[in-house]
Amino acid sequence: MYKEAPLDIKTQLRNHALAQLTDTLNDILKQLGELREASDGEEKNPAGDKYESGRESIHQSQTLLDKQYASLTQMQRQLKEVPVQPVATVQDGALLKLPIGNIWVSVPVGKVEFGGDVYQLVSKDSPLVEALWGMKAGDSVDFRGRKVTLQEVK
């Protein structure tokens, strides 16, 4: 799993995930700009109903995108604070090797392909991480009816 030192992998994973988040944030900003243009271009219909429903739809889309933007911005800040030093137990910043794959306890970005390997970036609040919290390599836990053995912690 670890072709490089864990510190290098964690740093590169963080940089890769930050770049993904930045791309998504830029896309949201672009969509918000397009919605503002659509809202400004919306002409008052003599009947009024069509105009109001169109503006309400645009407003709902803007509200949703604003929430996504705020959530991703917060995730970006949290990711920058995740420790990247080597650790011996499951905690914030731990890089885990499990039979089901590689996990980095950081923020809930999801799957990241990097260096020929796939990593799941999850928060410390994920059910699996909560079940493994504080454990070290070789420890096992029953998780959703399956025995999960922690192969490596870095």
Rank of each mutant, 00 (worst) to 15 (best):
L18P: 03
A19S: 11
Q20E: 14
Q20A: 14
T22A: 11
T22L: 10
D23M: 14
D23V: 14
T24E: 15
T24R: 14
L25N: 02
N26I: 11
N26T: 14
I28T: 04
I28K: 03
L29A: 11
K30E: 01
K30F: 00
K30Y: 03
Q31K: 03
Q31T: 07
E34V: 09
L35D: 04
L35Y: 00
L35A: 00
L35P: 07
E37V: 04
A38I: 05
A38F: 03
S39T: 10
D40Q: 12
G41F: 07
E42S: 10
E43I: 08
E43S: 15
K44I: 08
K44L: 01
K44M: 10
N45S: 15
N45D: 15
P46D: 07
P46N: 00
A47S: 03
A47D: 10
D49N: 12
K50D: 10
Y51N: 02
S53H: 01
G54T: 14
R55C: 03
E56N: 09
S57D: 05
S57V: 00
S57C: 02
I58H: 05
I58R: 06
H59A: 09
Q60D: 07
Q60Y: 08
Q60I: 00
Q60H: 04
S61R: 02
S61A: 15
Q62G: 15
T63K: 03
T63G: 13
L64E: 13
L64V: 11
L64S: 15
L64T: 02
L65Y: 12
L65V: 07
D66M: 08
D66H: 10
K67H: 09
K67Y: 05
K67I: 07
Q68W: 02
Y69I: 04
Y69F: 06
Y69A: 08
S71L: 07
L72P: 08
Q76L: 02
Q78C: 09
Q78E: 12
L79C: 02
L79I: 06
K80S: 12
K80I: 02
E81K: 14
P83R: 11
V84K: 15
V84S: 14
Q85I: 11
Q85H: 06
P86D: 10
P86V: 08
V87G: 13
V87W: 07
A88W: 13
A88L: 13
A88V: 01
A88E: 15
T89K: 11
T89Q: 07
V90T: 00
Q91M: 01
Q91C: 05
D92Q: 14
G93S: 11
A94S: 13
L96H: 01
L96C: 08
K97R: 08
P99C: 13
P99R: 04
I100C: 13
I100N: 15
G101M: 10
N102C: 15
I103E: 09
